[in-house]
């Protein structure tokens, strides 16, 4: 056996190089996989909402998304209680200094990959509170932003459009 092992070491490897897959073939395989995955798993995102100092106007319209007329869950989007279960962090408000730490902790508690959505004028630009010394100003100054949904507050249709774009 020793002889066989030594021979094997010095002979070099038997494993052949991988087959060359053309870009076209690769794309077709990925598309197949996508179809199967979507059929089995669907498209779904779990959202954790954090009020980082809003006036509660944005919250009212976000809650309206769950009413029977907008029915957010039909798109596979749902609100979850824990950041540990969330794919999307939805943030409202001009990020008051008093909420900055809690916002960061919530983000850090989420598993990657994760999206951050700034909802409302305050979260996007600081809104009327942009100049306040007790507010950070925008969510972007604290967290990387993937999507902005402006409005004061954005109405449920604007919110839906933004969220649907996330699941593409």
């Amino acid at each position: 056996m020793r002889k066989l092992l030594i021979e094997s070491v010095f002979r070099g490897k038997l494993t052949e190089p991988p087959p060359i897959v053309s870009d076209g073939e690769k794309a077709a395989l990925v598309a197949d996989l996508d179809r199967v995955a979507q059929r089995r798993l669907g498209r779904s995102l779990a959202i954790r909402e954090v009020d980082a100092g809003s006036c509660n106007g944005c919250e009212l319209e976000i809650i309206a998304l769950t009413n029977a007329l907008y029915d957010l869950e039909r798109f596979g989007l749902k609100f979850v209680a824990s950041p540990r279960h969330a794919d999307v962090l939805m943030v409202t408000g001009p990020v008051t200094r008093n909420m900055e730490a809690a916002l960061r902790l919530t983000y850090e508690a989420m598993p990657a990959p994760k999206f951050v959505v700034a909802v409302g004028d305050c979260a996007c630009t600081g809104g009327l509170f942009a100049e306040s010394p007790v507010c950070v100003g925008t969510v972007e100054q604290i967290l990387p932003i993937d999507l902005r949904i402006p409005g004061c507050p954005p109405d449920p249709v604007a919110l839906l459009k933004g969220l649907i774009s996330l699941i593409g």
């Binding site: 008051t96 008093n98 809690a102 509170f129 306040s132």
Partner: peptide, 11 residues
Amino acid sequence: LGYTHKGTLDL
């Protein structure tokens, strides 16, 4: 409370 203090009156 106090988490949503924005300094509104000051503004």
